[in-house]
């Protein structure tokens, strides 16, 4: 490719902006980024676990068949392959289903990838209850807790397809493993701008406010913004932090929010134990004890149903976030 760079000195993207904007689904934006990363760096290769179309990788497969390894429905082997490949200087990107690429291959992920500290990027589609209708076997509402407990691991939950593109591109700079949780086969609302500055480990403050802060990630960012907009009419200033990086947590942003707003609501499509809420609570308990409410799944396996209804069933949405804010403000 040509050596053109953008104004930040980064290689210029060959992926048209309209294509990223049109993606609308984080799994597809991630697939576009995989192809772009592979164009930039001949060491980048994709590993599929029968997930080529889930990630929109068929054009990449046709253009660069030697750069896509199909591991089949065999996540343990896929994860071990990625680790071994990384030791040779390659930059493997595993494309898997969140419920399977985490727990089915967990020992390979822990030992071969995290313990050996290899540069493996794990794209995990259908995180949370994206596949709510599929039943508990296909839900991933403990993945963040698991990944957050892996030393060396970076854990990212992009808020939308655009941010997914930036997050995937940012993994170029990482020296260790990274887990990126993605959505499924329905459009995700845009909550970030395509030209927004993205940095791993730095929260985006999407809404200003000094009365209370909502710290959200992934699918719960858009409802958090909606809460802030609604409560603004009542004169309540709700700060919204898009905490796209669960690990390393943006401690400064959390502590500033605690000091400046005095109350925190966390919101995630995950069990309330061990994920974003857990990370925030652990920090605040030791550094800046602050009243909190945590929006997320309880300690149970989710019911079956359409994702939107199951989200409502477990109060993972604007209404619950708003209620939690009002409750804390009383």
């Amino acid at each position: 490719m040509t050596s053109t760079t953008d104004k930040a000195g980064q290689p210029k993207s060959e992926t048209p902006e309209w294509e990223i904007k049109a993606a609308k689904q984080s799994r597809l934006a991630f697939g576009l980024a995989v192809a772009e990363l592979a164009r930039r760096d001949e060491k980048v290769a994709a590993i599929s676990a029968d997930t080529i179309d889930l990630f929109g990788l068929r054009p990449f497969l046709e253009a660069s068949p030697e750069r896509l390894i199909e591991a089949g429905i065999a996540e343990q082997n896929a994860m071990g392959i990625a680790a071994g490949m990384a030791t040779t200087g390659m930059r493997p990107i595993i494309c898997g289903y969140a419920p399977f690429i985490t727990t089915r291959s967990l020992e390979q992920l822990r030992n071969d990838v995290a313990y050996a500290n290899q540069r493996v990027v794990i794209g995990a589609a259908c995180g949370g209850i994206v596949l709510a209708m599929a039943g508990g076997t296909h839900h991933a509402v403990e993945d963040l807790a698991i990944m957050r407990n892996m030393p060396n691991m970076t854990v990212i939950v992009p808020a939308d397809a655009r941010q997914t593109w930036h997050a995937a591109m940012a993994t170029e700079q990482l020296d260790g493993p990274c887990y990126i949780r993605l959505g499924g086969k329905f459009d995700e609302p845009d909550v970030t701008e395509l030209d927004a500055d993205f940095r791993i480990g730095r929260a985006d403050q999407l809404r200003n406010g000094d009365d209370i802060t909502v710290i959200a990630c992934g699918a719960l960012v858009a409802p958090a913004v909606a809460t802030s907009q609604a409560l603004a009419h009542d004169g309540i200033g709700v700060r919204v932090l898009n905490m796209h990086t669960i690990k390393p947590l943006d401690r400064d942003a959390v502590l500033a929010a605690a000091v400046e707003t005095g109350a925190i609501v966390t919101a995630e499509e995950h069990r309330v134990t061990g994920g974003l809420g857990g990370a925030v609570a652990e920090l605040l308990a030791t550094e800046q004890p602050t009243p909190m409410r945590m929006i997320g799944m309880p300690d149970e396996f989710a019911i079956v149903g359409p994702t939107a209804q199951v989200r409502e069933h477990y109060a993972m949405g604007e209404g619950a976030i708003t209620d939690a804010c009002r409750d804390l403000m009383r």
């Binding site: 343990q76 071990g80 392959i81 071994g84 040779t88 020992e107 030992n111």
Partner: peptide
């Protein structure tokens, strides 16, 4: 070349290394 001990890991890691050789 790899931290091992959990059994049943080395073959997959070796496949990755062999693919790394082929791809490079």
């Amino acid at each position: 070349e790899m931290s091992t001990g959990g059994l049943g890991h080395g073959l997959s890691v070796g496949i990755g290394m062999a693919l790394g050789a082929r791809m490079q």
